[in-house]
Nucleic acid binder design. Sequence first.
DNA 1: TCAAATGTTTGATC
DNA 2: GGATCAAACATTTG
Length: 263
Amino acid sequence: MPELPEVETIVRSLAPRLTGRRILSAIFSSKLVTRGGLKKVAARLAGKTILSLKRHGKHIVFQLDSGVLTIHLGMTGKLLLDGAATPYTRGIFRLDRSTLLYDDVRQFGRIDFSEQLPERVERLGPDALVIEFDQFYALLKARKARIKSLLLNQSVLSGMGNIYTDEALFRARIHPTTNSGRLGRVRAQNLHRAMVEVLTIAIASKGSSISDYVDADGASGSFQLQHLVYGRADQPCSKCGTPIRRIVVAQRGTHYCPRCQRA
DNA sequence: TCAAATGTTTGATC
DNA sequence: GGATCAAACATTTG
């Protein structure tokens, strides 16, 4: 479900409401999601106070008065403040003034407690929303992966997922299989600009709700209404009318305009 | 019944 | 070491 704009939307809405709150207790029910041990993680969280809540790529990092709670939503994870439990509720955080639920149908998400910021988060590449052009260009030049694969690689650049990668490449008129090292400065600038623009507008639209995504209050985003290629296979390109094509790149469904984005 | 789904990891292979 | 690819994880939906 969640790429950078969706996670950012959740964090922005939860941060002011959770900062300073105390975790009275936690209970988990999925060994897949809470791999550190259901009871062990719960015991370590009980009594801790939330000092801050931040987004690192697609991870949500809670700095506690001692230790760190890290949540990754996987494909179908949701954090719901004072929502109703469902058969897919995998975690319940009872706080001093509210209840935070973690719902996840497919259980690809992760909930971890650690003393320090986890390795997984430390190793993330620079954030796609704030990376400067020079650093972005250096990343492209240092590799020769297909541009779509590179943008999806969280250790190179963090935050981009399947939707926003397709949307950014279309807006920059770059074919998804283009070798990143062969992109010239101008085309790289177009991509950098398109990426930041798409992410920024998507955040302003509170994310894309395709099938699962809702924010912490259960509300849908609206950026899906502005998708130009993602999920639009066979529909006419908004720019030239050529049918949008769907191929598989980096093992993900990939949508592009064969005329606007030449190989 | 088959394919696809907002993500990541792991192992094999070149 | 890099990069690609397939498979796996678990479940729903069209």
